[in-house]
Design a protein around this nucleic acid. Structure first.
Length: 561
RNA sequence: CGGGGCGUAGCGUAGUCCGGUUAGCGCGCCUGCUUUGGGAGCAGGAGGUCGCAGGUUCGAAUCCUGCCGCCCCGACCA
């Protein structure tokens, strides 16, 4: 592609709407332009990368026996009503105004529709069906460029099996295929066991990339690979020390002391000696949650223990429930259910609220003074705590979900009546799996991990072009001729070459554009070098430059890609 | 949906508090000449309903009201 004729609108300045590196780079390099919130056009350069990514996905999906479909984005609403997902998706589902259609946010329904009545025998199974197409979701808040959009490309695959053992095989195939896909894309990722949410079903794994732009928080152990969503992550922590002797309970006047920090400061004690109380409402009943010091309550864990949902008590309710306002609440004398974090197990000589404003009490012995207390793992874990599996240090950080694989089970086959007959002629619902990859997210995550101050750094697998050829002064015949020959030769050899043949921009301009666009290898043709029958070759990632004779240029270049 | 910020030429912005020339600057764009290995120089030029709609005023980018859009934090996230 000759830059003088191509549409690759690079930008020197950083657009105000872009905040994260991948978004900035996509706009500056002319890969995408925003049309509306969460809606992007891919320009030729960006679309070229998208095609590289989808081709890698295609190859790996086909390698495990996947068959590619092309499905409609417009779906009759009835089929979504059959699975109850019009309600489940709620406002996230786009509805067409002048006909009873919805814009598909995913394709379980349509794939199952095609399986129903066609996959009739156990002999027809297993099947792996996939598609790489645009999905539509009315996100309340699109963000981070293409990472969360209202319209986005997704590879989604569905497997159809006779039973859960067979599903295990399909699931494992996808697990391996996903690792190959992300490895080939050059992405540094990790795998997290997760809850499958509204998709329904049992086991699932998320393929994640560490990033501040991420929307999930995960705990990760570098040494053993343990990774878990913060909602369920566990760690090994030292319990509170139980002193040999329990003091008597005594009341302390603590005017204006509300927080644990203020309490520690006021009494000159350690955080570990205090217990913080939080009131939650579960099924209309108050529950007191007791945490050590400033440890945060993990509401997901709490909901898992209590069943159903919880909400923090409103400020106004607290006094009726406890007799005190927030800041003076404690477990002693509390009339309802009390749960305490496992870290506080059998602790004594604790300080906590007195359920009387401006008073705390000391000398609390949970065994003696709060006999009804129940202990559970209730903490939000933090960086530096010990891995529950190997004991090394855990890191807690934000991450982007790149892909997700689920064991769906029979939710959709049952609601849509997709059954097969077994060897005995008995009907069973087909056992399904569902496997997604956010295609734009692969691109965004790659960029988040591969750039420097000057711009993008492509690896060969995703690079839109392998070579970036620059003629420094395209008004000099020798340079024009040399560049033309190199361009034609490399193109004939099957390489993709971006040729900066512009005759109206300065050399410096070309260098900077080349670094911004980030092709793996730059070939710089200038007057000085040509006099010595040579050109300069620069490796984008390392910045290494070498003078290469025209006589062995192609051999040298082929070594680099 | 709650909180915060922003909207002035293709891009980035000044001016807005405290109303008053022809709305300024940089980049980009067009013409000509020069320049050509790290975002060129000189000269000339085009490009704006100051997000939209009302209102106040002799006069509004600037003040008031309503709406729209975009970004960030939170909620939500299949």
């Amino acid at each position: 592609m000759k830059l003088s004729k191509g549409f690759i609108p690079t930008l020197k300045e950083v657009p105000t709407e872009a905040v994260i590196p991948s978004h900035v780079l996509m706009i500056r390099s002319g890969m995408v332009r925003q049309v509306s919130a969460g809606i992007y056009s891919f320009l030729p350069l960006g679309y070229k990368v998208i095609k590289k990514i989808t081709e890698i996905i295609r190859e790996e999906m086909n390698a495990i026996g996947g068959q590619e479909f092309h499905l409609p984005a417009l779906n009759p609403i009835e089929i979504w009503e059959e699975t109850g997902r019009v309600e489940a998706f709620g406002d996230t589902l786009f509805h067409i105004k002048n006909r009873d259609y919805v814009l598909a946010p995913t394709h379980e329904e349509i794939m199952t529709f095609h399986a129903r009545g066609v996959l009739k025998s156990y002999k027809d199974l297993p099947q792996i069906w996939y598609q790489i197409q645009t999905k539509f979701r009315n996100e309340p808040r699109p963000r981070s460029g293409v990472i969360r959009g209202r319209q986005f490309l997704m590879k989604d695959a569905y497997t159809f099996d006779v039973d859960t053992d067979a599903l295990d095989i399909s699931y494992e195939l996808h697990d391996k295929a996903y690792r190959k896909i992300f490895d080939r894309c050059g992405i540094n990722y990790f795998v997290v066991g997760a809850s499958s949410g509204a998709m329904g079903g049992s086991k699932s794994e998320e393929f994640m990339v560490k990033s501040d732009a991420g929307e999930d928080t995960v705990a990760y152990c570098e040494s053993c690979g343990y990774a878990a969503n913060i909602e369920v992550a566990e760690s090994v922590v030292d319990g509170a020390v139980r002193h040999y002797e329990s003091k008597e309970v005594y009341e302390i006047h603590t005017p204006n002391v509300k927080s644990i920090d203020e309490l520690c400061e006021f009494l000159k004690i350690d955080e570990e000696e205090t217990a913080k109380s939080r009131i939650y409402i579960h099924d209309g009943n108050p529950v007191l949650i007791l945490m050590q010091g400033n440890n945060e309550v993990n509401e997901s864990k709490l909901e898992g223990i209590l069943g159903g949902t919880v909400r923090p008590g409103h400020k106004e309710e607290l006094k009726d429930i406890t007799g005190a306002d927030a800041g003076s609440i404690g477990p002693v004398g509390f009339k309802y259910r009390i749960l305490a974090d496992i870290k506080l197990k059998d602790a004594n000589n604790l300080y906590s609220g007195a359920n009387k404003n401006d008073y705390h009490i000391g000398g609390i012995d949970l065994k003696r003074d709060v006999p009804s207390v129940e202990y559970f793992d209730l903490r939000v874990i933090e960086t530096g705590e010990k891995c529950a599996r190997c004991g090394n240090s855990l890191e807690v950080f934000k991450a982007i979900e790149l892909g997700h694989i689920f064991k769906l089970g029979t939710k959709y086959s049952e609601s849509l009546g997709a059954n097969y007959l077994d060897e005995d002629g008995k009907a069973h619902p087909i056992v399904m799996g569902s496997y997604g990859i956010g295609v734009e997210r692969v691109l965004a995550c790659y960029l988040e991990q591969n750039y420097d101050d000057n711009g993008i750094i492509w690896d060969n697998n995703l690079a839109p072009y392998q070579f970036h050829l620059m003629g420094l002064n395209m008004k000099v015949d020798e340079i024009i001729d040399a560049c033309g020959k190199i361009y034609n030769d490399l193109t004939a050899k099957g390489f993709e070459v971006l040729f900066d043949d512009r005759n109206n921009v300065q050399a410096g301009f070309k260098f900077n554009d080349a670094d911004l666009l980030g092709m793996p290898v730059q070939i710089i043709v200038g007057g000085k070098g040509l006099k010595e029958n040579s050109v300069e070759v620069k490796v984008r990632r390392t910045g290494e430059r070498m003078k290469v004779s025209l006589d062995n240029l192609y051999e040298e270049l082929e070594k680099l890609v």
